[in-house]
Simulated scan of single mutants.
Amino acid sequence: MNLEGSRAIVTGAAGGIGAAIARRLTERGASVLLTDLDADRLASTTADLDGNVIQLAGDVGDSAHLEALIAAADESFGGVDLFVANAGVFHGFGLDADEQDWATSWDVNVMAHVRAARLLVPRWLEGDGGCFAVTASAAGLLTQLGSPTYSTTKHAAVGFAEWLAATYGDRGVQVAALCPMGVRTQMIEAGEVHEDPDARLGHAAVTTAGATLTPEEVADSLLDAIEAGRFLALPHASVAEMYAKKAADPDQWLSGMQWFRNSLS
């Protein structure tokens, strides 16, 4: 996909990876609609961007808000070529994660993607196609120590993206999945000082497994993958090696993860 002149929606765009993706898109000549729950922070981020940029705050877990986003992009840009499902939550640690932690994680990390695809894929099939990109995580290919909710829903996010690609990838709908390890965002910073030991375990696992990248480095990885037509965007090259080892010998890989968990305790 050629991003120059494209029309994009980026969710979870008030900061972190989402804001970096929006910035890099504008630098590559795209028109961008940003959305996030944090209206004040979203407005500040949008004001800092150059180019054809608009914003609409709201909850991407709500189908009505997704419909409003698409309508706003249609009105301002004339359509949607790229949807970046970047919004995500990191709620719920250990087996003590409660029903609400699971429900929120599932709703934002997975079902928001499904609801957006329901709205966009049919119109792309009837028109000139489009690209659906998800910010998943290396946790969706490997696992996430400390948080079963995050690990499970990020696996589901990758699985849904794979299903989209297998079903529509040869029919004009490109799909990309971004799967980084540690990224310098508020989410990872919160884990370092969290009162829950499982949350701190998750933070330590991410920050010691590899380099902690900037959001801009991660955004570049995704946009490069989109322009090259690749499904997986792996800002940390080591994730591909870990993923291959996991597939080749799951038992050995799990033993290694157990050793890694104990080393962080």
Results as ranks from 00 to 15, higher is better:
91 H>P: 00
229 G>T: 07
91 H>I: 10
247 A>Y: 01
257 M>K: 14
261 R>I: 10
89 V>H: 08
86 N>E: 12
152 T>F: 02
109 N>I: 05
90 F>A: 11
46 T>W: 07
155 H>E: 12
19 A>Q: 14
34 L>H: 13
84 V>M: 06
105 S>F: 02
46 T>L: 04
143 T>D: 10
41 R>A: 15
7 R>L: 06
152 T>P: 08
34 L>P: 05
154 K>Y: 11
116 A>L: 04
194 H>K: 03
48 D>H: 01
35 T>I: 10
87 A>M: 04
208 T>E: 15
77 F>N: 13
216 E>Y: 05
243 Y>E: 13
185 T>L: 09
219 A>M: 06
242 M>A: 12
184 R>C: 03
229 G>W: 11
256 G>Y: 06
88 G>M: 10
92 G>D: 05
151 S>I: 03
175 V>W: 01
241 E>V: 11
205 A>V: 02
220 D>E: 15
82 L>M: 06
46 T>K: 13
259 W>R: 15
40 D>I: 01
55 Q>L: 02
9 I>S: 09
99 E>V: 14
258 Q>T: 09
219 A>H: 14
35 T>Y: 08
119 L>K: 02
117 A>D: 04
40 D>T: 15
211 A>M: 01
249 D>S: 09
55 Q>Y: 07
256 G>R: 09
147 S>W: 06
78 G>Q: 12
78 G>H: 10
264 L>T: 07
36 D>M: 11
31 S>G: 12
187 M>A: 15
170 D>H: 09
62 D>W: 05
235 P>S: 07
7 R>P: 08
166 A>N: 13
207 T>R: 12
243 Y>S: 05
26 T>I: 04
167 T>M: 08
87 A>L: 08
34 L>N: 08
230 R>C: 02
45 T>H: 15
264 L>W: 13
141 L>D: 00
230 R>H: 15
235 P>Y: 00
142 L>M: 13
210 G>M: 01
24 R>V: 06
37 L>T: 10
193 V>S: 15
221 S>W: 02
